[in-house]
């Protein structure tokens, strides 16, 4: 069980309030990702849930029980840190065993759980090594192993993949998703990388300056961003945001068009521009179009076979029913 409810929690450091009153419910078994630019308070929020920071006001409930004053060890949550925080003087086995030893569990049960976790995480061959002798990905798995053996109500991940190289990151992303499917335990995952958020989450919480901008499923956020911030943050490459005259034609202050919703033509179209950089990915080509009079650059997704060259003149037409409209406050007009 791992249903976590945050009830009007706030956090201030001295006079600075980093988390204004915030409500959030995380259902049992959900994979929730907190995403936002750096300094948006997502890590602080996670640490509040973990109990490593005290809330300034409000209430945290875990499975309906008030856990606001409960010390971190008693909350039944396990955390995987950005730096992995492995104990360098202990072998992998001792690292994984540490929470069990602290709980005073008997040796047989300890061994059973450790061997189980090692099998799940492909660590069986490394149990006697020190963390210093492992690669980044293996260390990551040890950190996850140390969390798994406790059989916690929920896992907390604090940017766990940011120290890995790109290829490894994609692999670990899959492994963590896989793990979630198998364990069916609540997971809360903090990242600044919206791709990680989109690929892993059941539910994404977009944060900015301690405020929740939007909560929803990845596709929900992608299709119906509630405001300009979410529109610009979710999606890669980012949504084209166009203000001024072209937007007024749609009764909005700003309109947003995703790169894949921009039709490209060499003959005719609504807007005209010149091709700048073309990024060929094989399956797709992302074209950066300049001199459109709409915005500095307009990004367009074309198919992989496109033969346009630098400096060619092209015409753009947005897909009418896929245009996102935003008002003067940056809120969505539906």
């Amino acid at each position: 069980m791992g249903r976590i409810t945050l009830d009007k929690i706030t956090k201030s450091f001295g006079d600075v309030q980093v988390i204004p009153p915030l409500d959030l419910t995380i259902e049992d078994g959900e994979f929730v990702v907190f995403v936002g630019p750096s300094g948006c308070g997502k890590s602080t929020l996670l640490r509040l849930i973990a109990g490593l920071e005290d809330v300034s006001s409000g209430e945290i409930r875990i499975d309906g029980k008030n856990a606001t004053e409960t010390p971190p060890a008693k909350r039944g949550l396990a955390m995987v840190f950005q730096s992995y925080a492995l104990y360098p003087h202990m072998s992998v086995r001792k690292n994984i065993a540490f929470p069990l030893r602290m709980a005073g569990m008997d040796q047989k049960e300890q061994d059973r759980r450790i061997d189980n976790a090692a099998k799940v995480l492909n660590l069986s061959d490394y149990l006697d090594r020190r963390p210093g002798q492992l690669s980044g990905g293996q260390r990551q798995r040890v950190a996850i192993g140390r969390a798994i053996v406790r059989e916690p109500a929920a896992f907390l991940f604090d940017e766990p993949l940011s120290n890995l190289d790109a290829a490894l990151r994609v692999g670990m992303r899959l492994e963590i998703s896989e793990l979630h499917n198998r364990l069916e335990t609540t997971m809360i995952y903090v990242t600044h990388d919206q791709v990680e958020a989109m690929t892993m989450a059941d539910k994404i919480v977009v944060l900015r300056a301690g405020l929740i901008e939007q909560v929803g499923s990845p596709l929900d956020l992608y299709k119906h961003p509630r405001n300009l911030f979410v529109a610009g943050f979710i999606g890669s490459p980012t949504m084209n945001l166009i203000a001024g005259e072209p937007a007024r034609a749609y009764d909005a202050t700003t309109i947003g068009v995703r790169p894949e919703h921009m039709a490209l033509s060499t003959e005719s179209g609504k807007w005209t521009g010149k091709v700048g950089v073309a990024e060929h990915l094989g399956s797709d080509t992302f074209l950066h179009i300049h001199e459109t009079g709409l915005a500095e650059t307009i990004t367009v997704r074309a198919d992989g076979e496109v033969t346009l060259r630098h400096g060619d003149t092209v015409h753009l037409t947005p897909v009418e029913d896929k245009i996102h409209r935003f008002d003067g406050e940056g809120m969505r007009i539906s």
Binding site: P72, A85, M102
Partner: peptide
């Protein structure tokens, strides 16, 4: 490393 101490705190030490 402060995270090591926090990790051990969460581990129940």
């Amino acid at each position: 490393d402060g995270e090591q101490l926090e990790a051990s705190e969460m581990d129940g030490a």
